[in-house]
Design a protein around this nucleic acid. Structure first.
Lengths: 152, 152
DNA sequence: CGCTATTCGTTGAAAATGTCAATGGTTAAG
DNA sequence: CTTAACCATTGACATTTTCAACGAATAGCG
């Protein structure tokens, strides 16, 4: 079994490149490797990060419509449709017409959906533990805090 | 002139959602909004972040081959080809056969390329200043430091 | 009440991006 | 010298993004 070699092995000399000081670049790279890792983990549940995100929100406290999912996840409404088609086909969520506005549909998790989310959550935790392994617990907290300020 | 409304306006109630504690999600969202902003800025030079990244590396100290660009930017070699076709067509970079290994090509900036990079750099700085505006200078430093540890 | 404008989810198409196999030219290993 | 490996390139294909248009439903206003 071969370990997945670090793609940037042997390019240590580039760590001083000007580009390396650009947050845009660092964010993109960190996000890319991070969600690749998460996707690999989630593959055993036939999920991707995007499905996981929708499922997580569906399992949360708030009753959310597709429009709200779209805004919060910064995905086109049509992409939400596709993701929900998948999740609904798997019996993980349901679309319920919002009684207060029959144009909207509220996304509700099924029992199976909650169970799936619980399993997926563990995998994602594993994945982030790996991704953030170079950081101390305090640093992970700080990173999350800073990202949250930037992301909203 | 209408300001681009925050996509997640009115969804403050979701700031406590479980998903909001997941670094994968935070990274993806921060990276997404960050590079969207940068792309908007760079549009006036008909550049995208991916072109900017290649141009930045080409203008750096190290002589890099396409393979090395591919590894460092985590992009398929074929994507590097496409980006370089664009940049070369614009006269910003040149492909020079590596004398020590005639299979490889070293990417070198032209004078125009350096000038273009200088202009683009300013725009990207502007963009990141905006993106990171919710953070103090010290926090920006810390964020960059943490991201760098995660990204490499 | 009616009429118009707007919003929602959905569909479908087009563009951008990502992934992968195959090729010719070149080098490395034996 | 022969074989294997590597590089840039091409082309095919899948995934993701972006956008316009539609029917159903609501909101605003006369």
């Amino acid at each position: 079994m071969t370990m997945p070699t670090d793609p940037s092995a042997g390019l240590e000399r580039l760590l001083e490149a000007e580009l390396t000081t650009e947050p845009v670049f660092l964010m993109a790279r960190a996000a890319s490797t991070g969600s690749s890792a998460a996707n690999r983990k989630l593959a055993q549940l036939e999920l991707k990060v995007r499905h996981y995100s929708v499922l997580a929100l569906a399992c949360g406290e708030e009753q959310l419509t597709q429009r709200e999912l779209s805004q919060f996840l910064v995905l086109d409404p049509s992409q939400i449709v596709a993701i929900l088609d998948d999740l609904e086909r798997r019996g993980a969520v349901e679309r319920r017409t919002d009684p207060r506005d029959r144009r909207s549909k509220i996304i509700a998790p099924t029992a199976a959906g909650r169970k799936l989310y619980a399993q997926a959550r563990v995998l994602v935790e594993d994945s982030t533990a790996e991704s953030l392994s170079p950081l101390s617990p305090a640093e992970r907290e700080e990173l999350s805090r800073l990202l949250k300020k930037v992301a909203f």
